[in-house]
Write a protein that binds this DNA or RNA. Structure first.
Length: 213
DNA sequence: GGGAGGATTTGCT
DNA sequence: GCAAATCCTCCCG
């Protein structure tokens, strides 16, 4: 018999572990974004781990700044940053207070409230593309820096929380190099996704940008 | 489906 | 100044 999904939010202890344990364990869980129009549910299908100050791919590599301060705090909080002049990306802070590790939420499947996301994702040609990529995910769920530092373990109602759900089996987890990470930080196979899931974003190696003419 | 080029602004060196 | 944990449109095949 199949157990019903557990709708309690993941407790803080879930995030208070090494980030390389937490990242694959997040796959298949449901991120709940509560909005005035109603809840949006996102089943996580792809994530990336950023492992502390030693990780050259991490925003924490060059130390604490105002931008990345949440990464250095306690686990179970959202770190939301702005990049490329246009986009937001969301992470979940892991490990104990003082260790700047986090998991980037890269893609997922909208399982409830898709109609609330389509007006923000006009370029999506089908529902699989609504949250296929970290900035698309944040756009679909109306996530911006106002949510930086949000406690995702506070319990409902909260702007953001993660339902315990039903974890997926290890056999369904794949891993490989991180996407779009420059330099030596890109070599770590710390991107995790669900095998054969159509909402996983395509792999793209980092490409330095040329100056405009 | 994949590559090139542009968009657009913040944060840090 | 310039790079940035990206995405979109256009074009090609």
């Amino acid at each position: 018999m199949i157990a019903a999904p557990d709708r309690t939010p993941l407790p803080r202890e879930f995030f208070d572990r090494p980030v390389l344990e937490v990242a694959p364990d997040l796959l298949g869980r449901t991120l709940v974004r509560s909005t005035p129009e109603g809840p949006i549910h996102l089943r996580l299908t792809e994530v990336e781990a950023y492992d502390g100050m030693k990780d050259p791919g991490s925003h924490a590599y060059r130390g604490r700044t105002r931008r990345n301060a949440v990464m250095f705090g306690p686990p179970g909080y959202a770190y939301v940053y702005f990049t490329y002049g246009m986009w937001h990306c969301m992470n979940l802070v892991c490990g104990p207070d003082g260790i700047a590790s986090a998991v980037l939420l890269r893609a997922g499947e909208i399982t409830e409230g898709a109609e609330l996301t389509r007006s923000r994702r006009r370029s999506a040609r089908n529902d699989k593309e609504l949250a296929k990529g970290p900035a698309r995910l944040a756009t679909a769920l109306d996530i911006d820096r106002a949510l930086d530092g949000t406690d995702v373990c506070a319990g409902l109602p909260s702007p953001l929380s993660i339902l315990t759900g039903v974890p997926i089996s290890d056999e369904q987890v794949r891993n490989g190099p991180r996407t779009g990470v420059s330099g030596e930080g890109g070599v770590h196979p710390w991107r995790f996704w669900i095998a054969n899931d159509p909402t996983v974003s395509p792999y793209r190696a980092h490409k330095p940008r040329r100056r405009s003419t």
